[in-house]
Structure formats: C-alpha cells, structure tokens
Simulated scan of single mutants.
Amino acid sequence: MNHDAYDEPIRYMNNVLSIHIWQVVKTYTHVNWNPRWHYHKELEFLYMQEGSMEIRVQDQLYRLDPGDVFVVGSMQPHITRKTDENKLAYLVLHFDLQPYFDPALLMHFRYFSEIDRPLCSLNGQIKQKEEMRAELTRTILLLFQELERKSIGYEIAVSLQVRQLLLTLLRHDDSFRHAAVPYEQANAPSLRPVLDYVNLRLSEKIQMSEVSAMMNMSYHYFSKYFKKVMGLSFVDYINVQRIRKAERLLLTEDIGITEISERIGIANTAHFYELFKRINRCTPREYMRRLVPERTIGDSS
C-alpha cells in the first residue's frame, strides 16, 4: 500500500458556496483498499445508492450498505474499499464550513469546528436512527438536484440545504443536549483568526504574547478569555492540533518519529511521545499497528 501524503484537493462546482457533489460508480472487480489515505478541510457526506463498501476513518472501521449515510469530519484521514465484485454507486458531498458560518450557525461554532470530538462520532447514531438518516438522505438528494439543474436561485437553495444538514446532525445528537449556548461559546467566532494562525504555524514556535497582541488583549486576559471560550487552555489547544497533524503524517507519509516531531513544532521527541500517549492513550507505534499493520515507522517508541 502506498502511503504518500494526500491532502485531497476538492474542485468546487461553485466557488462562492465552496461545495461539490457527484455520483461515484465503480464496476471493477478487485476489492482491495484504495492505495492512499486522504483527508481534506471540507466536511464529507456519503449516501449509498447501490452495493456495499467499507470505510476506515483513522482507527474506526465501518461498513456502508444501500441507504446508509456517512459523515467524515474536517481533516480526518480516511480510506475506502469495495466489499465485493458487484456494482457500487454512491453520492459524495464535500463542502467547506467557512462560507456557512452566519450569526446563527456561529452560535454553535465549537460543535461544528469539532473542538471536542469529530463529527464522525455521529455515524453510530445515523446508522441507528431512521428519522435522522431519512432527513440527511432527503437533504443530500435535494443538494444533488439543485447543483445539477442550477435553476434560478439555486445558490440560495443550496445554502439552505447545507444548513439543514448541519441542523439535522445537531438536533439528533443525543450527546449534545444543551438548552442554550453559553455566552462564552457564543463568542468563539471572535477567536477564528487565532485558530487559523495556529493551524498555519504548527511547525513553528507559537508565542502567546504575539497572539494576544494580535487580538489587542493583554497576555493574561487573552489566556483567561481563550480558556473560557474554548474550554481548554491555549497551550493545550496547540498540543491537540499538533498531535492531530502528527496522526495525519503517520498515516500519509513514510517518515520517522524524529522528523514528524520536528514538523509539528516539537523539538523534544520524548515530549512528543508523552503528548501523543496522553491524547491517544497509545504510542505512535501502537497507533500505526492498529491502522496500518503492514507498515513500520522509523525510530523506536
């Protein structure tokens, strides 16, 4: 299996809407896993029409059959394969969340930004809940029709349907039953420049003094404000994002632990091991054994 890095580029059907939906049809007979893990910033929804396939999202394996709907979170490495020699057909929907963060959706910024957990964790509920699955299916099909026909005003219709998809996830999520969004979480969008700044500079040394100045806040006020809004400290947020990037590198690049540690901005390899184990409850080597049993990684762990 080839493990070259693959940050999949999504070619939008409409650049303003940052969206693409198409039908995939596979009639070939081989049933091996696709050659490369891939990931992308866009959310991904799959709607199964005919045949069956398996999808692995990091260390979780799922089987998809006709009528199933599946969601993959932003930047989550995943890989698929056919399960038999029969014809396979399904719809794939990709869209970037950014254009859809209006004031109402921004109230749930933390949820849809997957700060606490990936949206992929909802797939068990989607599989079990017929009403949730039916709503998602109906919305995906409407999106497909609108983007195929491009009737007058389709941009408005598509924007509404994307929000309907997100609303369906939120309302059917049994683990998310807050009656009201706390004031601090409602202010999360104001930190968007900080989050973007961090994600672009994970390989560098990130100084909170620079970030607080960028936000026109004192060092201590920014530290307290970030923790109130995000639910974790600025340093912890950076560490989580670095380990998530390390996971993608482990899956998609054939490089050793020392280089991975350097590329995520952690010069001390022992510290990298400590953080990785704290967040994933396993070492990098154990992580790779679960996900790619046939591959080894450089440097001991």
Score class of each variant (00 low, 15 high):
G124K: 03
L202W: 05
S223Y: 06
A157V: 02
A270F: 07
I55W: 06
S113E: 10
R110I: 15
F70P: 11
R289Q: 11
E247D: 13
R133V: 05
H108F: 13
L46F: 15
F45R: 03
A186R: 13
I140C: 00
T83Y: 13
L167F: 07
E146T: 12
S113L: 14
L147E: 08
K224S: 15
L61V: 04
R201D: 00
L17P: 07
L170P: 00
D299I: 01
E50F: 09
D4G: 12
P77D: 12
E253V: 09
M1V: 00
L167C: 09
A213G: 14
L93F: 05
R201K: 00
R149P: 02
R278P: 02
I19K: 12
G153D: 02
S121W: 05
Y225H: 14
W37A: 07
E204G: 03
P193Y: 10
R133K: 13
L93M: 05
V198Q: 08
R248I: 13
M215I: 10
V71W: 00
Q241N: 08
H30M: 08
V158R: 01
Q23P: 03
R56L: 03
L169S: 06
R242G: 14
M53W: 08
Y197H: 13
H20I: 05
N86D: 13
K227Q: 06
V181R: 10
D174Q: 12
F176N: 12
H94F: 15
V292D: 07
R263T: 02
P35V: 04
H108K: 14
D236I: 08
S212C: 11
R138P: 00
S203P: 05
D116Q: 12
H172A: 00
D173M: 02
H108I: 04
L250R: 08
G67S: 01
Y287H: 12
I264V: 15
F101P: 04
K224A: 10
V181D: 10
T252S: 15
N199F: 01
Y39A: 10
K150Y: 08
K277V: 04
N216I: 09
W33E: 02
E286N: 00
E85H: 13
K150A: 11
G256A: 08
R138C: 09
Y183T: 13
K150V: 09
R171C: 11
I279M: 08
I19T: 12
L232G: 02
G265A: 14
K150E: 14
R263D: 08
Q60G: 01
M230R: 06
Y225G: 07
G153A: 05
